[in-house]
Every structure is written in C-alpha cells, then in structure tokens.
Amino acid sequence: MSLASEWVADASPGAVRAAVEALLVRVPVASADHVVLVPDAHYPFHPSTGLVTNPAVVEALARTLLAEGATVDVGFPPSPWLDVERTRRFLGYVGLADRLGLDLLDLVPAREADRRRFAVDGQVATLGVPSALVDANVVVVPSLRTDPRQGVAGALATLAAALADGAPSPAQVAAATSALQPTLGVVDATYSYAGEPRASDFLLAGTDLRELDRAAAVLLSTDTAAIPALVRSTGTERPLPSVDGPPLSALAATVADGRAPDVSDPGWPMRAGYRLYARLTGDVVPPQFLEATDG
C-alpha cells in the first residue's frame, strides 16, 4: 500500500491548501459524509516547533473536505498537561471553528462498559471509541515529531490518545487501529521536530497508519526496532512502502537529526548530582532538584 507526499511551497494558507488538495487527489477520503479530523494538540506549543499539528493544515483539510460536500468537525482527546478547552483555544482552533462553522469535539473516553480488550504481541490493551467518533470517518493528523515515550508520536499514537483513558501505553498504540480504523492519516510536516524544529514544508498521507508511522520513523532517523508500537504491530522486516510524490530520502533531508530530549524528571543523575554537590559545599538546593519526598 503506497503513501503520497507533497511539498508545501510556503507557509501561506493558500500554499497549504494547494498541497492538501493535491494530496487528497491521490489519497481521497472515502465515504466522506461526516469527517472528524483528529490533530495532535496535546500542549500549547507554537505550531512552528513541529511539536503539535499546524492548525493551518487542519484548516486546509477542513476547507477541502467541506468543498467536497462533507461535514467536518475537529476532535480533541483530553491532555494531562492542560484542559483541552484552553489548549485548543490557545492553538487557534476556536477561531478556526468560527471561520468555518465547525464543531470542536471533546473526545471523552468511552465508558468502561464500552471498552474492548485487544491482544497485541502477547499484551492486552484496553481501548474504547469515544461516542463522537463511532459513526465518523476519522482522519488522523499527527505532527512529524519524535517523542521520548513513544519514539515517534505518529498517527497511531495520535489515534491511541483518542481511544485510551489517559496517556496510551505502547500496547494501546499498537492496538489502536484494531479499535478504530481511520479513513486516512495525514502527517503534517510543514514543521517537524527531531530534537529541534525544522520548517520541513511537506505533507505525507496514507490509509495504513502503521505504514505511515514506519515512514515517519525513517524521516525522523528513528530505528523502527526502538518503537515499541511498531515492533508489536508490524514487525520491522518488511520493506518500506512506496511513496507517490517526493521520496522519503528527499523529505528526510528537511528534518533535523537530533534526538528526542530525555523525559526523566528533571533527570535523576542531575538531581542526585546537585544534591551531592549541595551536601559537599553547604549550598542550598533549588526546587526542581529537591527529591519527591521533599515535596
């Protein structure tokens, strides 16, 4: 199954829209009566960092699908960092919804009774489909970024965030498409993040989210064997999917080759080292280096 890629000429809305339209000719959204776009909006990072989906891409997708006669909404799963209402407002989605007459949907986790268990590679993952997505054609729109927890915060992880009750585990990410098969995934790489941001100026789309994530891993110079969800769901031995459009090698040249920052909080070696230094010298310890038992 192939993927499609498209350069985005510049950051203007018109250029983003043109790229989206060109992309959707090659990977059309099937049965597009009611589409819910699910972007990565987990934290109010500026879109130019590549750490969240660029709302300009979501707007271009929405405008294109609306022009084709679909009804379109945008769905947001809860985030552990900030309530979803403020996060999407800060990122500009309230203005987007007002401009296009869309609804912004809270993807409330499914009730426990409606959750199902999926076995993936010997592990069990529990997932539920939020009611807002049950009868919708879901288009997942991740950003192209590394993630210290998931390796790649790709299409599967973005989908799993909407299906898990809380931060999804690798097994839940791997099982996401068993619970809900999206119509399409569109990786927003207008900006990318691999240790640092880049203006990468491209989009990559496909109907198979696993293949899309494998391609994203290549673009981010991340070994697919180090991405638990991909190992569990697909293995790593298969050849990469073909790409209709600019090849992965050309796209990858636009992405930084840095690594995801360490997620440890704020790094136990540094914390332990600072406390040792403070004991040696009589200096005081700043709040971020105090032990959990101190707080």
Binding site: F45, W81, V263
Partner: peptide, 15 residues
C-alpha cells in the same frame, strides 16, 4: 509553559 519534554501540568493561575 515548558520547553519539551513536558513534565508537569500548566499552573492554572499563571494563565
């Protein structure tokens, strides 16, 4: 806000 990776919820009063 925090630089990446995010490690704690945003303080409400600061917003």
């Amino acid at each position: 806000f925090e630089p990446p990776p995010v490690s704690r919820p945003v303080s409400g009063w600061q917003l």
